[in-house]
Computed example of a mutant assay.
Amino acid sequence: MTTWKNTEKLSEIPAQDQQWPGTEAALNPAADHGETTWVGRERLTGKKALITGGDSGIGRAVAIAFAKEGADVAITHLPDESKDAAEVKEAVEAAGRTCVVIEVDLRTEEACAHAVATAVDGLGGLDVVINNAAFQMAQPDFPDFPGDQIERTFATNVFATFWTTKAATPHLGEGSTVINTTSIQAYSPSEPLLDYAATKAALNNLTVNLASELGSRGIRVNAVAPGPIWTPLIPSTFDGEKVEGFGADTPLGRAGQPIEVASAFVYLASDEASYVSGTVLGVTGGKPVF
């Protein structure tokens, strides 16, 4: 039986904060991305995957798990996330796989097309698209909600998913797959994350619609809806006291590790999920996804 690193500490996360977008090195306790805990079983051998937001958190764990399962990966990251991205590249290459690192802000259609083209060129093709890049920032006072934030949140979370998938579709063939990262927030929204929660609900709808649209091409489209997962996004978007005890309100009594979410992406990208499309798979520690 696998025991993920530091899960016992995730039921008592101390108060802390970071400057956005946060770094993995500053997390207390450290998060587990599968560097030493994930055991590959050749479930993705030969596949080529683009993972947006692959420098930290869930995206980082997905990149490492995919590499250990035999996939080559391309990851995107923002300029402030270069150090974390370099660590992912090192981990992927240590697993014997190729890692293409793409510094890009995905808030325009041109940027998304560039990311896809760079991934296809660097990997020699594309089989899997993971739309994982996201922006969130808690805003406790609705009357003071900044107008530019809702534009940034929708551009990063929804528009970039649409544009990236659109650009990738001509490169995807029979058996390819698109996986979107949604959230428990789509089902049980928190008031301070009003805009973020709305984007995740939109992605659930987009996932189902894209599954219908692309099914005739043999392309499967699914989503993973994480619950409270311990990533730099949490201390960099909430006040320190709000971070304390993060995830303790789940039925399992703790936050989840990024690698515990990555397992869902591995399944959905693998041939084991060949008849799974248009579904949203919850990884929430027991919080309901319906």
Rank of each mutant, 00 (worst) to 15 (best):
G53Q: 09
A74I: 04
D84Q: 04
V92M: 09
V92Q: 12
E87A: 13
I51Q: 00
A67M: 12
A71L: 09
I58E: 00
G59S: 04
G53M: 08
L78A: 13
A91R: 00
V88S: 02
P79Y: 07
V88K: 02
A95E: 07
E90D: 15
F66N: 01
V62S: 05
E93D: 09
A67C: 11
K89F: 04
E87L: 14
I75M: 07
A63Q: 05
A91Y: 05
T98F: 00
H77Q: 07
G54S: 09
E90H: 07
V101L: 11
D55E: 15
L78D: 06
V62I: 15
G54K: 01
A65N: 08
V88C: 03
V92H: 10
E69F: 05
I58K: 02
V92A: 11
R97E: 11
T52L: 10
D84I: 03
A61R: 03
V101D: 14
T52Y: 07
K68G: 08
A86N: 14
E87G: 15
I58S: 00
K89D: 13
D84A: 14
A71I: 08
E81F: 00
K68V: 07
E93C: 09
E87T: 13
A94G: 14
C99R: 11
A65Q: 07
D55S: 15
A74H: 04
T52I: 11
R97S: 05
K68F: 09
T76P: 13
V101Q: 13
I64L: 05
V100T: 15
F66A: 02
R60N: 04
T76A: 12
P79E: 07
F66H: 02
A94K: 14
C99S: 13
I75V: 13
E93M: 12
R60H: 09
V62P: 01
A95W: 07
R97G: 04
E69A: 06
A61Q: 03
E90F: 08
V73W: 07
E87K: 08
V92K: 10
D80H: 12
P79H: 12
A63Y: 03
A94V: 02
G59M: 03
A85D: 13
G59T: 01
G96L: 12
F66K: 02
E81Y: 00
L50C: 10
A86F: 03
